[in-house]
Design a binder for these strands. Structure first.
Length: 1012
RNA sequence: GCCGGAGUGGCGAAAUGGUUUACGCGCACGACUCAAAAUCGUGUAGAGGCAACUCUAUGUGGGUUCAAGUCCCACCUCCGGCACCA
């Protein structure tokens, strides 16, 4: 099998030996220790001046150490940051590249319970295992800065930040129903629920009212939204993030602008604002323009208004029954849009539409969500899909108030200034054959096409009008009206045959012919158009040809709605049936209508408050104390951290109390204010707490006075590059931004946003294309790969697989390519010219700045320097690796010619390889006679002037096709090249007998000849 | 339904509007070998042709351009996210 690397010969590449050796040495030398550490002891106020170099903070999303250990997919992002940080270090940056562990939370706890282990012990074990697995890959982490969220020295500050939020009123106790996972026996945040299921265990989530701590993240909704597009003083975006993630966050925050409108409520014969405790129904709508079309009002079952109105209801028990059934439903059932809508009317009360004072019924229905907007909506079935479905089911009236507005903004049809505008009603008839599935259409002599169309007289109804038109234009007299289609549309256009602008209200009627009885058609009509039968497929193309009323969109609109009863028009348009607002554009009248009915223009967000309590053991204790006299008080700073007590039983209780509640010794404390009897808060924090600020702690991980020294924070902030999985887009990345923004607003940190550039890692799938998982037993273990192929091979392969942010299936046999590449490098190293170490002290020579630049390195090395550097910067690792491969191919070619490889050339090559394959490049670097680590060398400098090849290939295109190419000296003039080309037989053949119209010359690239 | 992203060889993929298929895998043939493995070399989009060469190909259909994988319009498919948010 090719997959196995056979026993090595003595001087062959022995990855095991080399990798272990260098990992030990690097660690002993503290090679990757962040420079700033050394300066910290010096006494100075100006921290930043201490460090000569520019800083670069590169961060991985720290892992959650599960019991299963790492698979080959996990380190992909770490490999990338390792390469990036080595590259930056070689460029002279002061690099901060730390690692730590996010170890509180449900999965670890559930696993510990399953394994009958204490979560703390198990976490320690897992962390150890993870660290070992990371270390064999040769990463350059500064482990002296390791953080662990479960360390009391760390979570002291997690608790401290929580208390800052609490003190600013951003943490509060709530008793609202929240998402409850019956399997994990804890409340969950909105972000922890996916498709109505617990994100962790997949159990269907229930709604359960309970006491909980909630963070007011919605107070920051606007800032979090605006921050996405914020720029710094230099006009650079604060967030250099993928657009897709920005969009995801925008959607998650979900801002909508709209109106809050009060509907007065009439109970029996009284109007609500005249009766005690009476309440108006406040609704939120993004479409106040449809207010005249409101035919009922709906309250969410959980709306507090329901309990106020229910006593005045004539059908109290029916409503109560409905509400209790709604409560029983799971979130999945509640929010399934496809499901038939249900509801019940509150009989005996009416709401009053503030726009027209109509009395309309009030319903309770669970398609309205209590948590969003005001928990009440005004229903406009004509212009809202959901309201329409509900109205159909309960036979509620549908009232059109928005007419699609077709304004043909082309030269010919655009209404002309200074001309009279005629207002008319027009009927359009779609007339079906008496037995076949085909339709009558008119083909006008002047090029128009369309259905039967005609103006309706003042005293005539639409139905009468269309019947009359049919007889006039076609003669058919026995027609049956089936239905009206598509409400009303407005057509606004210039009618050339009348030299007037027209503003037409168009109604469409669908009719069927009963038989072919016809009356004679007048000569005049016959002259105007012919009557054609078109079958279904022909209608739409035929309509598009032209229209008597501006463009043909209105008739297409009607045709589309012919067979769909099931629709409501949700677009914009012109107002009809809307009193003073008739004829106005719906988009333009929003605010005006809102004002006219006393409404308020507001913003609403989909983002929900962050449910911050977990009724579980394995988390940071919430550092609050409940005192009978003083209420809820913060644990004083001096008493932090509130340590998680060791317990015998940490299984969740399921009662809504955390297991901590049972530990009397821990729970019962003195009130810090009045010294009276008090109890500790027993809920713990969610998993996301510790990860919301860990990047700050890395900057100053040992500080016991503050969570981070402000001077140090100012130096390192923000994180310059943050690499991790896209699955955190709406959890961690929202939470961390929220905490950071809060800390910024309160002067604790210096930047508004924590992470400047964000880069996503694409998943590595298993060879079978599925996700790697124990469940599918398709997991590839990095330990095995490192053992068999080496860490360098694995690192190189994972970077070479494909674009970094794309998910790609693992393929071990494909990996041998990168192994072969390294073996070739190894063999090539034996052919490097021997340099007399005495005569030629390479170490000193290489320390000279820009040494390479002065030397005569071949163009392909300069190209590689340029390309590899650019590709690392852009995180295009796959092409960086291929560039290295190309460079090696060139080195081998030159070896063939000269019999040996230049020492300098190979040194430069090794430096380019060093970030990718740190062990091998270090070994070979030392073999060249160097004393200091290659990883402390400076990155080679590309001399742009050396990039130019002696010869260039010129492509000859004739009429857009490549016909010939030639190699010429790059210094040759345009004229000379053109002469050479024109003299060529092939070129002559292609242009013979033709006239050259045009010639385009791109220097060094191509000549394009165009003939007639 | 809405919002993103992507469709290029047998496969992973590459390509500032300028030779489509770099680099690697796989495959075929050859060299070395008693043989195999490893290694090295050559070839490898499709069709036609003995060949030189020609034609056709970057999901589909149009368009802009001397020139389009790349820009514009319409559509199809797949992947990811959100979704009764009024």
């Amino acid at each position: 099998m090719k997959k196995d690397i056979k026993a090595q010969k003595i001087n062959e590449y022995d990855h095991l030996k080399i990798e272990k050796k260098w990992q030990k040495k690097w660690s002993a030398l503290k090679l990757y220790k962040t420079k700033e550490e050394k300066n910290k002891n010096k006494k100075t106020d100006d921290f930043t001046s201490e460090s000569e170099a520019k800083k670069f903070y590169i961060l991985d999303m720290f892992p959650y150490p599960s019991g299963e250990g790492l698979h080959v997919g996990h380190p992909k992002g770490y490999i990338a940051t390792d390469i990036y940080s080595r590259f930056k270090r070689m460029q002279g940056y002061n690099v901060l590249h730390p690692m730590g562990f996010d170890a509180f939370g449900l999965p670890a706890e559930n696993y510990a319970i399953k394994m009958k282990m204490n979560p703390a012990d198990m976490t320690a074990k897992n962390v150890k295992r993870y660290k070992e697995q990371l270390e064999i890959l040769g990463f350059d982490y500064d482990w002296s800065r390791e953080v662990n969220t479960t360390d009391p020295k760390y979570y002291k500050w997690t608790q401290w930040i929580f208390l800052q939020l609490f003190k600013k009123g951003l943490a509060y106790e709530s008793y609202e129903p929240i998402n409850w996972c019956p399997s994990c026996k804890t409340g969950l945040a909105n972000e922890d629920v996916e498709d109505g299921k617990c994100e962790r265990c997949g159990t269907v989530v229930e709604k359960k009212p309970m006491r909980q701590w909630v963070l007011k993240i919605t107070d920051y909704a606007e800032k979090l939204l605006a921050g996405i597009d914020e720029k710094d003083a230099n006009g650079k975006p604060l967030l250099d993030w993928p657009d897709s993630i920005k969009e995801l966050q925008r959607n998650w925050i979900g801002k909508s602008e709209g109106a809050e409108i009060d509907f007065k409520v009439k109970i029996a014969d009284k109007i609500s604002d005249k009766i005690p405790n009476g309440k108006n129904i406040k609704v939120f709508t993004t479409r106040p323009d449809t207010i005249f079309g409101v035919t009922y009002v709906v309250l969410a079952p959980e709306s507090p208004l329901v309990s106020e109105f229910i006593n005045s209801a004539l059908n109290k028990s029916e409503i109560e029954k409905y509400i209790s059934e709604a409560k029983k439903k799971t979130e999945i059932d509640r929010t399934d849009a496809k499901k038939e809508k249900t509801g019940v009317e509150i009989k005996g009360i009416k709401a009053i539409n503030p726009a027209n004072n109509e009395e309309i019924p009030v319903y309770v229905a669970d398609y309205v969500l209590a948590e969003y907007g005001t928990g009440a909506v005004m229903a406009v079935p004509a212009h809202d899909e959901r309201d329409w479905q509900f109205a159909k089911k309960y036979n509620l009236p549908v009232k059109d108030v928005i007419a699609p507005y077709f304004f043909d903004n082309t030269e010919n049809s655009r209404p002309r200034e200074g001309l009279e505008t005629v207002n008319r009603r027009v009927a359009v008839g779609i007339l079906k054959h008496w037995s076949e599935d085909k339709y009558i259409m008119l083909d006008w002599k002047n090029g128009w096409t369309g259905f039967i169309t005609g103006g309706v007289e003042e005293n005539e109804s639409i139905d009468e009008g269309i019947k009359r038109e049919i007889i006039e234009e076609t003669g058919y007299k026995n027609v049956k009206i089936i239905k009206r289609i598509g409400g009303v549309t407005i057509n606004h256009f210039y009618a050339p045959h009348k030299e007037k602008n027209q503003f037409i209200e168009t109604h469409c009627v669908y009719l069927e012919l009963v038989n072919d009885d016809r009356l004679p058609v007048s000569e005049e009509e016959i002259k105007k158009h012919s009557v054609l039968w078109k079958n279904k497929e022909e209608v739409l193309p035929f309509l598009k040809k032209g229209s008597p009323m501006g463009d043909s969109r209105y008739s297409e609109f009607f045709w589309e709605h012919l067979n769909t009863d099931n629709y409501s028009y949700v677009g914009s348009g012109n107002l009809i049936n809307s009193g003073n607002f008739n004829g106005r554009n719906s988009n333009e009248v929003m605010k005006e209508i809102t004002k006219s009915i006393g409404g308020e223009w507001v913003n609403k967000y989909k983002l929900r408050e962050w449910v911050f309590s977990r009724q579980r053991y394995w988390g940071e204790p919430i550092p609050l104390i409940h005192c009978e006299k003083c209420g809820v008080t913060a644990v004083p700073d001096k008493d932090l951290p509130v340590k998680l007590p060791k317990v015998k039983f940490y299984e969740p209780t399921g009662t809504g109390e955390s297991p901590l509640a049972g530990i009397a010794k821990w729970v019962n404390v003195k009130c810090p204010e009045c010294k009276g009897k008090a109890k500790r808060e027993t809920n713990t924090m969610p998993q996301w707490a510790g990860s919301s600020w860990y990047y700050l702690r890395y900057m100053d991980p040992k500080n016991s006075k503050v969570f981070v020294d402000p001077k140090i924070e100012k130096f390192w902030s923000p994180v310059d590059l943050y690499v991790g999985g896209a699955e955190h887009a709406t959890r961690h990345l929202i939470y961390a931004r929220f905490w950071h923004r809060f800390l910024y607003d309160n002067g604790f940190v210096s930047t508004p946003e924590p992470f400047r550039k964000l880069q996503h890692v694409g998943l590595i799938m298993a060879e079978d294309g599925r996700k790697m998982s124990k469940r599918w037993s398709n997991v590839v273990n990095p330990d095995d790969i490192v053992k068999t192929y080496g860490a360098d091979t694995m690192r190189l392969y994972e970077m070479f697989m494909g674009p970094f942010d794309q998910s790609i299936a693992w393929n071990t046999s494909s990996m041998v390519g990168t192994r072969r590449f390294l073996e070739r490098v190894w063999r090539a190293s034996e052919k490097v010219e021997k340099v007399n170490s005495k005569k030629n002290n390479i170490k000193n020579e290489f320390d000279k700045k820009n040494f390479e630049k002065e030397k005569d390195l071949p163009p392909y090395i300069h190209k590689a320097i340029k390309k590899v550097g650019e590709d690392i910067s852009d995180m295009k690792y796959n092409t960086a690796v291929s560039t290295l491969m190309i460079a090696l191919n060139e080195i081998e070619k030159s070896l063939e010619k000269s019999g040996q490889i230049s020492s300098l050339e190979f040194s430069v090559f090794l430096k380019l390889l060093a970030p990718f394959a740190p062990h091998m490049s270090e070994e070979l670097w030392m073999n060249l006679g160097n004393k200091n680590s290659i990883h402390l060398e400076s990155w080679p400098v590309c001399d742009e002037s050396k990039l130019i090849e002696k010869n260039v290939k010129i492509i000859v295109q004739i009429n857009g096709k490549v016909r010939w190419s030639l190699e010429v000296d790059s210094a040759l003039s345009k004229e000379k090249i053109e002469t050479l080309i024109m003299e060529n037989e092939i070129v002559k053949k292609w242009i013979s007998g033709k006239k050259i119209i045009k010639q385009i010359f791109i220097p060094g690239k191509l000549l394009s000849i165009v003939t007639d």
